[in-house]
Design a protein around this nucleic acid. Structure first.
Lengths: 345, 345
DNA sequence: CTGAAAGCGCTTACAG
DNA sequence: CTGAAAGCGCTTACAG
C-alpha cells in the first residue's frame, strides 16, 4: 500500500496572528484593509502574512459574509454544437463580460449549456454566485424557457439574446445600427436594397434590425425588400440560401443589408462564387462586427457594437439589481464600420 | 430613509430535517447520496428539500471538505488587447475546457489576464479552485514568467501555449500536423514550398511545426524554405508581410505552409490582392482549424486539432495531478482538412 | 441505519 | 485601537 499522504497543514489567520503578535480578529481586519486598524499593526500583520505565505480562505469568508464575490455566466449553445463552432460574437461578449466583472472585483464562473441535461441556473441558491448573466443563441428555445421560468424565483440576472422582451435584457442599439447601415448604402448610391432577415418573433434582434432598415428605406422613399432566411440551418448556410433566392428572383439588386455578419459571410461567398462582384454590382453590409468580417474577401462592412460597453453594461445592470438599485440603460451603442464590401468602385 | 431590507431567511439543512422528521446529519447524507441511508429516508428527505426549495450551501460544503469542485482557467491576452480580438483558437480551446470540466463535475472560474496589474494565480491558496489551467498567447512573456514562478510553489496546473518546455503542457501534435500539411502539398504536385514560420525560441509550437515541415520536405528530397515572420505585429499582418517578402524575393513558389491560420489568412489576402491565384498559382495551407478558415475566399485548407480532445486532455491531466496520479498524454491528435486553397485547378 | 457533536476558517458585533 | 466569542451551514468521525 501507499504511504498515507502527509496531511498538508493550512496556514490560517491564527498562525498569522501568532507570528505578528496580535489577535486573530486583528489579522482579519488588517488584511481586509479595515481603516480602524493602526498603520503600524496593519504593516506588521501584512509582513507576517507574507512570511507565512498566507491567503484568506475564500470559502470561510464567503460562508461568513454570505457574499460570493462571483458572477455566474451561462453561455447557451445549440444542442450538441461543437464549442469551436460557437458564434464568435458570443465569445467576444463573454470575454467582455469577464473583463468588466474582473474590473469591478468579481470572479466569473462560466458554463456552457446546451440541453435539459445541462441546464443549471441555481447559482444563488447554491451560493455559488451573487447573480447570473445569460448569453448565447436565441435559437435554443428550451434553454430560454428554462431561464424564464427560473427568473420567476426572483433571482438576480441579466441576459443577452433572449427571445422574450419581458426579461432583463441588454441589446445592441439594433434600430439605430440598421438605420446606419441602410443609410450608408443609400448614400453610396444604392436604390434597390434587399434586407436578409427573419421576422420570426423569437429573433428579436433580427426583427429590430429589419425594422430599422425598413424605417430608413421608407424615409428615403424606397420600398423595403425582405429576403427571409430559412430556419434550422447554420447562419452561413442561411446567408447562402438567401443569396440564391435573391439572385433567382431576377429582381434587380444593388445593395444588401444582412442582419448579422455570419449570414453576410455566407451571402458574400454565394455571390462571389456566382460571379457577382461585391461591391461593384452589389454592395453588402452585415451587423455584429465579428473578427472574421475583417478577413473576408472583400473585407465586410458592418455595424459594430461597443463590446467593452456591452460587457460593462451587463455587469453594471446585474450589480445594480443585486444592490436593489434600478438601472435603465439597456442599449449598447453601435458604430458603422465601412470596409471594401460597400466602397465605391 | 429607506426601510431596512427585510432579512432574507435562508433555508438550511436543519429546516429540511424538521420538515422530513429526521436529523440534520441524515439530511446531509441523504442529499449527498450516501448509500448508508435507507431508500425510504432518502426519498422523504428529497421531497422535503424540494418542498422547501432547499439547495446545499456550496460555501459551507467547501469549507468543511476543503475541496472546491472548481477549476480555474486563466486566459493570457496581449496587453490591452480588446477581448474581441483574442485569437479564436483560444476561445475554442476555452470552450472545450469548460465543457470537459463540466462533464467531469467541475465548475470553471474563468479570468482573462494581460498584465502585471492583472496577474493572479493563487487560486488554490485562496481556496477558489483545486487547480489551474492556463492558456493563451505565447507572446505575453511577463505572464508566462509569472506563472512559471508560481509553479515553483507546487500548485496543480496545466498549460497550453507556454514558451517553456519544462512546464506541464499539452499541445497539438505539431510535428505530425506539419508533416501532413506538407505531404499534402507535395502529393498535390507542389515542389517549391515555403513555410511561413518563426524559429524564435519562445514560439515552441511554431518551431515544432517548422520542424515537421522541414522533416517532410527533406524526406521528399526538397529543400526547406523558411520565410520568417516579423515580431510585434498582429498575426494577420505577419502573414501579409511574409507574403510580400516572399513575392519580392522573386523566388519561384507553388505552395505555402503557414504555421497558423491567422497568419495564413493574412497571407491569403496579400496574395489575392497582389493578383496571385490561390490555389492555381500558389496552394496555401494553415494550421489550427479556426472557424474563419472555412469562411475565407477561397476556403483555407488547414490542420485541425481535435478540440474536444484538447479540453478533455487538459482537464484530465490536471485532475490526475490533483489526485497525485501521473498522466503522460500531452499531444492532441490532428487532422488534415482539405479545402479549396489547396485543391487542384 | 440514524443522531449528537465537533470543527472547517473566517467576519463582525460586542466590550473594553 | 484591539481582543474574546459567536456563528455562518455544512460533512463526517464517533457512538449507538
Amino acid at each position: 500500500m501507499d504511504k498515507p499522504k502527509p496531511r498538508t497543514f493550512r496556514v490560517t489567520s491564527f498562525d498569522v496572528a501568532a507570528e505578528a503578535g496580535v489577535s486573530q480578529s486583528t489579522v482579519s481586519r488588517a488584511l481586509a484593509g479595515d481603516p480602524v486598524v493602526s498603520e503600524a499593526t496593519r504593516l506588521r500583520v501584512a509582513e507576517a502574512a507574507q512570511r507565512l505565505n498566507y491567503y484568506v480562505d475564500n470559502n470561510a469568508a464567503r460562508l461568513r459574509t454570505g457574499k460570493t464575490g462571483t458572477l455566474a455566466v451561462v453561455v447557451i449553445c445549440r444542442p450538441d454544437e461543437d464549442r469551436k463552432d460557437l458564434n464568435p460574437f458570443t465569445y467576444a461578449l463573454l470575454g467582455s463580460i469577464c473583463a468588466a466583472a474582473s474590473a469591478r472585483g468579481f470572479e466569473t464562473l462560466v458554463s456552457f449549456q446546451d440541453g435539459p441535461a445541462n441546464f443549471s441556473g441555481r447559482y444563488e441558491e447554491q451560493r455559488k454566485a451573487d447573480g447570473l448573466i445569460v448569453i448565447g443563441t436565441t435559437q435554443n428555445e428550451a434553454a430560454w424557457d428554462y431561464y424564464r421560468d427560473l427568473a420567476q424565483s426572483g433571482m438576480h440576472w441579466v441576459c443577452w439574446g433572449s427571445p422574450y422582451d419581458e426579461l432583463e435584457w441588454i441589446r445592441s442599439d439594433n434600430h439605430e445600427g440598421a438605420r446606419l447601415a441602410t443609410g450608408h448604402l443609400i448614400e453610396r448610391g444604392c436604390g434597390k436594397i434587399a434586407c436578409i432577415a427573419s421576422l420570426d418573433s423569437l429573433q428579436r434582434q433580427f426583427q429590430e434590425r429589419y425594422d430599422g432598415y425598413a424605417d430608413r428605406m421608407e424615409r428615403a422613399g424606397l420600398e423595403p425588400w425582405l429576403v427571409e432566411i430559412e430556419d434550422g440551418l447554420s447562419r452561413e448556410e442561411q446567408g447562402r440560401r438567401a443569396a440564391q433566392a435573391l439572385l433567382a428572383s431576377g429582381r434587380p439588386c444593388d445593395g444588401i443589408f444582412a442582419v448579422c455578419d455570419e449570414i453576410a459571410l455566407g451571402t458574400l461567398r454565394e455571390l462571389t462564387e456566382g460571379g457577382v462582384k461585391v461591391p461593384q454590382q452589389i454592395a453588402l453590409i452585415g451587423f455584429d462586427g465579428i473578427r472574421a468580417s475583417a478577413n473576408a474577401m472583400p473585407p465586410l462592412s458592418t455595424v459594430q457594437p461597443d463590446f467593452a460597453a456591452a460587457g460593462a453594461m451587463m455587469v453594471d445592470k446585474l450589480l445594480a439589481g443585486i444592490a436593489g438599485e434600478s438601472h435603465e440603460q439597456r442599449r449598447v451603442p453601435v458604430t458603422l464600420l465601412v470596409r471594401e464590401s460597400t466602397r465605391h468602385g
